[in-house]
Computed example of a mutant assay.
Amino acid sequence: MLAVHARYRGREARRALLVKRSAEALSTLDGVGEFQVLGVEDICAVVESPEALCDTVMALLSDGSWAIGIGIVPGTSDEQLTRDTASGSLRGGARAATVKVAALPKGTSTLAEDIAAVFALMGHVLAKRTTEGREATSLVRSGLNQNEAAEELGISKQAMSQRLQAAGWQAETAGWRLAVNLLTRADAGPRD
């Protein structure tokens, strides 16, 4: 079972309202359970699949104002244990745009470190992205092909291709796939 815990680290004056609205918006993502608001800065939810978890973490990383904890507890249906594991990954504090991973049983720490490393690299790609790059990648991520996305933005296919390249689209998709694969292995549990 997988869960994500996010702690707002931004500078918004009305942070409680922003956190509540963020929880509501993230709860609409496919495969994501309802985010619980835990105090003024924290939200937490169980996530159905590695793909849904990656989509959620990418949305939080794109914002740049959240510290993110991932909890992985294979072979359980105990949602509270999984949420507690995600929350525990943020003990001791965490900076904005960082991802920490906690997995049970404790012997899976190397895999958890690898997952955190992939998200650190993807966070770096996202942090360097321009507004134009965000628009381009958002359209392609939503299912449009390059021609359709270029038409939507009113630019040429060549300009769209250049925007995607400058935005690190290939690195993002490769990192996303690697994160899904690692999360799938971690969620399957230790091998004998």
Rank of each mutant, 00 (worst) to 15 (best):
E51R: 01
L183C: 09
A96H: 00
R21D: 12
E132H: 13
S142H: 01
V19L: 05
L81T: 15
G175S: 08
Q162Y: 15
K106V: 14
A102T: 04
L38Y: 13
D42K: 07
A150T: 06
V40Q: 11
A94T: 10
S138E: 11
V4M: 07
I72F: 11
Y8T: 06
G75E: 06
S27K: 00
K106R: 12
G92R: 14
P105H: 04
G64L: 06
G175H: 05
R15F: 08
T184Y: 03
V47N: 02
L121D: 09
L153A: 12
A149Y: 04
S138G: 15
H124C: 04
Q165I: 07
A150F: 04
L18D: 01
T173C: 06
L164K: 05
A86F: 01
R134G: 14
Q158V: 09
A96W: 08
E41P: 00
V32W: 12
L60H: 08
A167N: 10
L121V: 08
G31L: 09
D187V: 04
G93N: 12
C44G: 05
A116E: 03
R129H: 03
A3L: 09
L81D: 11
G107L: 11
T108W: 02
L139E: 01
E34L: 09
V101E: 00
S156I: 12
L164Q: 07
